[in-house]
Amino acid sequence: MNRLRTLLFGLFFYGLSVPIVATVPVSALFGRQAVIAHAHVWAKMHRLLYRTIMGIRVRVEGHVPDGPVFYAAKHQAMFETLELQLLLGGPAMVLKRELSRIPLWGWAARRYGGIVADREASAAALRSMMRDAKALKAEGRSILIYPEGTRVSPGERPPLQAGFAGLYRTLAMPVVPIALDTGRVWPKHGAKRSGVVTIRLGEVIPPGLPRGEIEARVYQAINVLDDGLGAASGIMRG
């Protein structure tokens, strides 16, 4: 059954994604807000399909704060790259340079508010990333980063990439760490499974902390569900 559901999900999701992504240039003619609204149509389609075809529900623990913040999230699946855009109200996002080079999609992501990160970045590239992030902050946008720098399997805890601490210092924004367990139902390979996904928004961490302290606090908070410390109750989405 899971294999059949996964196949049906893929057919509908990728089939419907083609016209949505292909028409982004039209939205781009009307500015960034139009691109954000267009992208959220894609995310809402994803949400509808994972609920109806895959039988997945999302439990949210914690609260989305008022005002712009710097979100630092665990990354286990493509699932959260779309779901968090809806849950968090459309934050700008830090994305890998490889993604920004995908024809059409990469351009659309930049128009949405994509901040390009390069693991082997030159000083000029790092300055460009910081400059883009500050400009988006000035627009009143929250910023979302996956500070481990890559997708990981449940239980894996790689160290945070240096870019997180650099942005934290540059942006001087409060940080909201996000733990999640999407990899349990949405593995990188193989069939997806029905079940409940937990997304836990941690306590707000103030700006201005030393690098060692902010990295330690975020590292602990985004991995808290691996420790089995997630709250037993939350808000069910769908």
Rank of each mutant, 00 (worst) to 15 (best):
177 P>A: 12
214 I>A: 02
137 K>C: 06
62 G>N: 07
182 T>W: 01
53 I>F: 14
52 T>R: 14
4 L>H: 10
139 E>R: 10
98 E>V: 12
119 R>H: 04
152 V>P: 03
23 T>Q: 11
40 H>S: 11
171 L>V: 00
6 T>M: 13
120 E>I: 02
179 A>I: 06
141 R>A: 10
66 D>E: 15
152 V>H: 04
194 S>K: 10
36 I>K: 13
152 V>I: 14
197 V>F: 03
59 R>F: 00
131 R>S: 11
4 L>S: 12
53 I>K: 01
183 G>H: 05
231 A>P: 11
70 F>I: 01
171 L>I: 03
202 G>S: 06
218 V>F: 03
130 M>C: 02
85 Q>D: 12
234 G>N: 09
26 V>Y: 10
90 G>E: 09
227 D>C: 07
233 S>R: 09
3 R>C: 02
226 D>H: 04
32 R>C: 10
199 I>C: 13
161 Q>I: 15
149 G>T: 07
118 D>Y: 06
183 G>M: 04
221 A>Y: 06
190 G>A: 06
69 V>E: 05
87 L>W: 04
207 P>N: 11
157 R>E: 09
120 E>M: 02
38 H>N: 09
86 L>D: 09
213 E>I: 13
79 F>G: 05
23 T>L: 15
90 G>T: 00
13 F>R: 09
236 M>N: 01
78 M>D: 08
16 L>V: 14
45 M>G: 08
80 E>C: 02
82 L>S: 13
219 Y>Q: 14
99 L>F: 10
227 D>E: 15
135 A>Y: 02
32 R>Y: 07
75 H>R: 03
158 P>M: 11
238 G>W: 09
211 R>C: 06
177 P>T: 13
179 A>K: 02
164 F>I: 11
139 E>F: 05
27 S>L: 06
172 A>S: 07
89 G>V: 06
130 M>P: 00
43 A>Y: 13
172 A>P: 00
110 R>L: 15
37 A>W: 10
171 L>C: 01
2 N>I: 15
130 M>Q: 02
151 R>L: 08
8 L>C: 15
210 P>G: 14
123 A>T: 12
123 A>V: 15
74 K>C: 07
225 L>H: 01
101 R>M: 12
5 R>D: 08
109 A>T: 12
203 E>C: 02
9 F>V: 13
75 H>C: 06
60 V>Q: 12
202 G>H: 03
198 T>E: 10
67 G>Q: 08
72 A>T: 03
15 G>F: 10
219 Y>G: 08
12 F>H: 10
219 Y>P: 00
217 R>C: 01
165 A>W: 05
177 P>M: 11
32 R>E: 08
87 L>K: 07
107 W>F: 14
215 E>Y: 05
114 G>W: 04
90 G>Y: 02
164 F>N: 01
203 E>F: 02
128 S>F: 04
1 M>N: 12
136 L>N: 04
70 F>K: 00
238 G>P: 03
40 H>V: 03
12 F>G: 07
190 G>V: 05
116 V>P: 04
45 M>V: 13
89 G>L: 05
181 D>L: 09
227 D>W: 07
91 P>D: 14
192 K>W: 08
198 T>W: 04
137 K>W: 07
37 A>Y: 04
22 A>K: 12
151 R>A: 11
217 R>D: 04
108 A>H: 08
112 Y>R: 05
105 W>L: 15
167 L>N: 02
135 A>C: 03
77 A>L: 07
46 H>R: 03
